[in-house]
Design a protein around this nucleic acid. Structure first.
Lengths: 198, 198
DNA sequence: CCTTTTCTGTATCGGTCACTAAAAAAACCT
DNA sequence: AGGTTTTTTTAGTGACCGATACAGAAAAGG
């Protein structure tokens, strides 16, 4: 008995799908970054007026929070593999490669929303949102590494985030996927030396 | 006979030092990024009013260009070592380490102005400015590597910029210098494998 | 002295920012 | 139908954005 059924309520029904609105907002935030996207632009892209946006989502920052969550569940879904119990080195490398693919996937993809979406952002709340997700990613990587090699988990998890940062920033700067794959292979040598590949 | 003497001209003399203004603007652009700094804030920090700023520098973008040049000649001076004729691997690593030091040097240092100062920036002219400097850096690294190992110059120069991107982004995200040094050592293994250390 | 030139501060330009007050519109209820 | 609830649209709020018009002030040349 899944409770996803919509409860019938009084009042004028909403003329748009809030989840579809979040998806559209995610695209916009991803392409331009938090500060560079205006509320008027968000509303127009969703197909509504600003008051409807505020009624549905509360504020630009809360909509961004929804967008980050949506992004994590779609573009960033491959990070869930860090929770699996495969070999650490191979898992980390494959996640880095998927990150490169996601950050260069289509013409409008520009790096990673979580890593670079709030760079130079004036809203500290928005910055804190992405920072929390980044901390969660580091924690996942740390836990994966610590299962087999607890003594290098701190260093390796830091290095994983370091390389992730390079991937997102480079993707934004226009480095194509095949170059990113080369870079990941080179960066992976440091990871392999610490973790032992295989 | 250096021609740095100021030419005496008619008219009311300028009440501030334009070069000192550029230095102050550089700090501001570095700390907050291009878009997040307003003209009013720039003028106030320099100690002038907006009209004086426009009279002296032309526009916010032109002042930013001056700031980038000033930054390259001060914070980024160590990149000149890429032009020296030392061993490629050691030179590249030491430059990366200096970049980490510059990006975490004091409390207000936030990564690299050239690498991250125009992230999520809405002014395409400002973005082009930093991109040109980045391309120049890559070119320097490429030339250094190509002297001894032309067959890997493309890959190694790309990887050098990849690691540089990670350093700046990580510094902004709060990674301390000692962790960055560890990360550089790990990333350097990929560089060493290509270039041969020594 | 007076004119010319350049810089100064004040006060503001039109445009956009995130956000909202108010009322019309579209559904439900009795 | 009449009343209630919620969303819609219209039309704005004050604050800030980059950039300037204007007039007074401070120097030089005559």
């Amino acid at each position: 008995m899944t409770d996803t059924e919509k409860v019938k309520r009084s009042g004028r029904p909403r003329a748009f799908d809030p989840e579809a609105g979040v998806a559209a907002a995610t695209r916009l935030f991803w392409e331009k970054g938090y500060d560079a996207v205006g509320v008027a632009e968000l509303a127009q892209t969703i197909g509504i007026n600003p008051p409807s946006l505020y009624a549905a989502y509360g504020s630009k920052r809360e909509l961004f929070a929804r967008a980050v969550a949506h992004y994590a569940g779609t573009q960033g879904r491959f990070f869930a593999r860090l929770d699996a119990d495969g070999p650490a080195y191979e898992t980390l490398i494959s996640v880095l490669e998927d990150a490169a693919r996601a950050g260069t996937g289509d013409a409008t993809a520009r790096g990673c929303l979580v890593l670079d979406g709030t760079r130079n952002c004036t809203d500290s709340g928005a910055r804190a949102l992405t920072a929390e997700v980044r901390a969660g990613l580091r924690e996942k990587a740390h836990a994966l590494i610590a299962r087999d090699r607890p003594e290098v988990a701190d260093s390796a998890a830091d290095y994983f985030m370091f390389v992730l940062t390079a991937i997102s920033g480079s993707a934004i700067d226009g480095v194509p996927l095949d170059r990113l794959m080369q870079d990941i292979a080179l960066a992976g040598q440091g990871l392999g030396a610490m973790l032992g590949r295989g």
